[in-house]
Design a protein around this nucleic acid. Structure first.
Lengths: 362, 362
DNA sequence: TTGAAAGCGTTACCAA
DNA sequence: TTGGTAACGCTTTCAA
């Protein structure tokens, strides 16, 4: 059924060793034999069995990619970056979506290790307490690269943005625009959320601004359902005696939810409350109020992670972990764009047309 | 380095055959041996080498998934559906993104076949002329399922929506709302585009409406850059002596581009031009004018495709191709929602507030 | 330049 | 119920 090397060899009266060498472009083969073998390979439509090759060679030419949710455009972009980098090198991507479940993630990683992937790229949902999977990966001498999320206390290759800088960049921007009551809708229990919070607090401190404790609202759960949580968090902020004039949201999904809450309350963005998210998700520049955000160059994160992994897979193991930080980029759109001088002076009726005009000029 | 079955067997003084049976849950093993073996497996952290198993068993427990672009939410949703269905069955997904390139797609499929995947799910970019890859897949006796896009003349398992119905549903809706000059921004050279066009034409015919030939504008290229093309196509429509009062766009991305063009021209959606797309992409309900669309239940498409594939992989080959159609769902939002009676009677200034109010009521 | 043969880690058949 | 052993298709070493 399947054409094997043996079949090609038999048809030509040469040995399988010869065919094997031709297939892999091994040098010591006469041009004539090479050509004859190649023509038979074409004729029989022979394809080497990569399972056999993996077993024999001890390398599978596969890379495992574990993400919390492939639906989140951020992770899809990472997947794209990884694929585009490694496919030309003859590797395939085995994708595992952990659905934000640590247990599933561990199962996924184990299954990929069993598959003998040559390396792993992981956007992890695991906490420090669950991180022994990574030590098990190390034991196997399988290189891996963490992307987006880090695990405190784990020395590992990492590619992502500096999330403290993300938080600082966003908050700084809101301050520059004259906002003085800046709240933060915080993300779930992952490193990115902590560091963005740290950046937010740092920026406030630099400007000697202090906020009431209730201005930091915790989004209880994962990235995926962040929209609902953003909405709920925003509702809580709106109920405060003195409501914020700007909100830095953990990510764009949270900002989306927050903006729903703001509009529902009959308030205006950014005239009443300015908003900024993180991720630069596609098409959010076409929202009713285009959303300001921080771009993380996610395709590039995937690309760089794959590049780093390729290097680690090729070289002998043992080099110290590398951390690569991609600079975040502030993208200012209407949701945080109204200059502070205008604030308060605008009549309600003026706001929407202005936004529409702003959009048109683009 | 790697723990092998042999190591487990040696440590316990049993044979590898026994260990193998325990690992796979083979019945004739005494409870006592089973337990002892299992405890050693845990202790040594043994994981079966799936490359070896694949080679020996002739089945890899991997499914190949080929999509034109994982960034497109539609395909990411399919990937999610597939993964969620097959992971619990012990399969892994090998993902290949063809970047809308037929050549790359063929390479990708070949690499997956070489990897001995047990089955393939493909959203193809190939035309009938290039379809012999699929016959080669058949020769290998590897089952495959096409999703979203069909190839004319190729008898194959298929899961998707009935795109003619999609086109009819969208067009019918625009007609119902009182639109009489309904244009269509057509998709690229793929089955879905043809069939949506067919549905559009059918619906118009049923209502005895005829449109000028220029009302059908061809988007030259792939799904991915459909936003630019939608914009260009819309510009052409706007330049016509009698411009349309509604546009059925091949997909949401094209509609996004079209709406950019409409707003730039200083026109209003839907007061001047109503718009509807296809795909129900996430978050487009939060656009300045929320976008009407047709939902394709894409996660379900992935799920059903995987289910069908599992059946085909388990049963002996030879059954006739199955085609599964998921019913499309019309989702009416503001971009096509203004009742026809209001049309023309509204002053420009009234439109935006109305839309905002509409959004708030949600 | 070519080929024979060992062996990668597993499974499955058959014998004990 | 257990174990010996021959494959699975390929790579690689070493000899011819």
């Amino acid at each position: 059924m399947q054409v094997r090397m043996k079949d090609v060899a038999k048809k030509l009266g040469v040995s399988v060793a010869t065919v094997s060498k031709v297939v892999r472009g091994h040098p010591d083969i006469s041009p004539k034999t090479k050509e004859r073998v190649q023509s038979i390979i074409k004729e029989l439509n022979y394809r080497p069995n990569l399972a056999a090759r993996s077993l024999r060679a001890g390398r599978s030419q596969m890379v495992g990619l574990v993400v919390p949710d492939i639906l989140h455009s951020f992770f899809a972009e990472i997947a794209k970056g990884v694929g585009n980098r490694i496919h030309p090198k003859g590797y395939n991507v085995v994708l595992f979506s952990s659905e934000e479940s640590p247990e599933l993630e561990i199962e996924g990683i184990e299954s990929l290790l069993a598959r003998q992937v040559d390396g792993l790229i992981v956007a992890t949902t695991l906490t420090e307490a669950q991180s022994d999977v990574f030590r098990r990966i190390d034991e196997q001498n399988t290189p891996y690269v963490l992307v987006d999320r880090k695990i405190p206390g784990l020395q590992a290759n990492y590619v992502g943005v500096d999330d403290e800088e993300v938080g600082a960049l966003a908050t700084e921007h809101l301050v520059q625009r004259g906002n003085r009551r800046i709240a933060h809708i915080q993300g779930p229990e992952i490193s990115t959320a902590y560091e963005r919070l740290k950046g937010y607090l740092g920026a406030l401190a630099r400007h000697r601004l202090t906020m009431p404790a209730e201005y930091i609202v915790k989004v209880g759960s994962s990235d995926v359902i962040a929209e609902d949580h953003g909405l709920q968090a925003m509702c809580r902020l709106l109920a405060l005696p003195e409501r914020p004039d700007a909100v830095f949201c953990f990510n764009d999904l949270a900002a989306l939810g927050a903006s729903r809450a703001i509009l529902k309350a009959g308030l205006r963005i950014p005239a009443d409350i300015a908003l900024i998210g993180v991720a630069n998700m596609p098409h959010l520049d076409m929202l009713g109020v285009p959303l300001s955000t921080i771009d993380q160059s996610s395709v590039q994160i995937g690309d760089r992670a794959a590049k780093l992994l390729l290097r680690r897979m090729e070289s002998a193991s043992g080099s110290r972990p590398t951390r690569i930080y991609i600079p975040p980029k502030l993208i200012v759109r209407a949701s945080s764009a109204i200059p502070p001088s205008t604030r308060g002076e605008m009549k309600k009726a003026e706001v929407l047309p202005q936004l529409v005009a702003m959009e048109r000029r683009k």
